[in-house]
Simulated scan of single mutants.
Amino acid sequence: MLGHLGFSYVGLIYLLMLFIPNIIWSKSQPIDSEKTHENKVLIWFERVGQVGCTGSVLIFNDFNIATFSAWSLWLISSFLLMIFYEICWIRYFTNEHTKGKLYRSFYGIPVPLASLPVMAFLLLGIYGEVIWLIAFGIILGIGHIGVHIQHLKAIKKVE
């Protein structure tokens, strides 16, 4: 349950799926972007979760693909959530770059650019049976989803 040390190529793939759209986004900020005052506690949770998840997915080889079994459905479900995450980024990049487009739901999933990768990392942690990723995923979820909900509420006040 603690994890076996070793490089995870699956973790690297997840991080690439996470970081590449975010790098592109840094050059395609919403046109109606303005500074939002974010809760410092949520930011702290987000940063700790980001560092913990990034490290965990790379240093535990339990996430690498093993012989197919019913347990593999955790990995498949996790990867599908990452695919949905990529679709949400494509949806943002191919539309007008506004905060409303950035935070809109995806088939009923609120703030999908925050919630989908968090859920994917939690399922990946279950698949690999690595308590560290599960714990850091929960910490990340509290902060990252919390901050995004805060942004969404600020947008709705303006509308």
Rank of each mutant, 00 (worst) to 15 (best):
E46N: 15
E34R: 14
S78M: 03
F79L: 13
H97R: 13
D32M: 08
W132A: 15
L140Y: 05
V111L: 04
S77I: 14
P112I: 08
F93Q: 07
M17H: 01
I131M: 10
A135Q: 01
I109H: 04
K27E: 11
I43F: 14
N95K: 15
H144W: 05
G52C: 09
K99C: 06
T67D: 13
L42F: 14
M1A: 13
P117I: 03
S69A: 08
Y14E: 01
K101Y: 02
F79E: 00
F79Q: 02
A70T: 05
I139H: 06
F63M: 11
L12I: 07
I109A: 03
S56V: 02
S105I: 00
E38G: 00
Y14K: 02
L12Y: 06
H37K: 12
H148T: 09
K101W: 00
F68W: 14
K99V: 05
V57S: 02
G143I: 12
F19D: 00
I31V: 14
G143F: 12
G128L: 07
Y85P: 06
W89I: 08
A154W: 00
S33H: 13
S26V: 04
G6N: 10
E34M: 08
S28V: 01
L75P: 03
R91Q: 11
I59V: 15
N64L: 03
F68G: 00
S78R: 03
F93L: 11
P117L: 03
K35W: 05
P117C: 02
E38V: 11
I59G: 04
I131T: 12
W44S: 12
Y85F: 15
Q50W: 12
Y92T: 07
Q150I: 07
K35I: 10
V57E: 01
L124V: 04
M82S: 09
L16S: 09
S115E: 00
F79S: 15
L133R: 10
L18V: 02
D62Q: 01
I87H: 09
H148C: 05
R104M: 10
K153E: 14
P110Y: 12
F45L: 08
W25P: 03
G49I: 09
V118A: 12
W74S: 08
F45A: 09
C88L: 04
I87W: 12
I131C: 01
Y14I: 06
I155L: 14
K27T: 14
M82G: 04
S69D: 04
S56F: 01
G6S: 07
I149L: 15
I13G: 04
K99M: 14
L116R: 07
R47D: 07
D62S: 01
K27F: 15
L122E: 00
T67F: 05
D32H: 09
I59M: 14
H4M: 08
R47F: 10
V111Q: 06
M82L: 14
I139F: 05
I43N: 10
G11I: 02
I20Q: 05
Y103T: 13
N64W: 04
F68C: 02
H148Y: 14
T98A: 07
A135I: 15
G141C: 06
I65S: 02
V147M: 15
S56K: 02
L133F: 07
L5W: 13
S33D: 12
L80S: 11
E86T: 07
S8A: 06
F7M: 12
E34G: 11
C88K: 13
K27R: 15
G143M: 11
G3L: 10
F93K: 05
K35T: 11
R47T: 10
A66K: 14
W44V: 08
I145R: 06
L124W: 05
S56M: 02
S33N: 13
S115G: 01
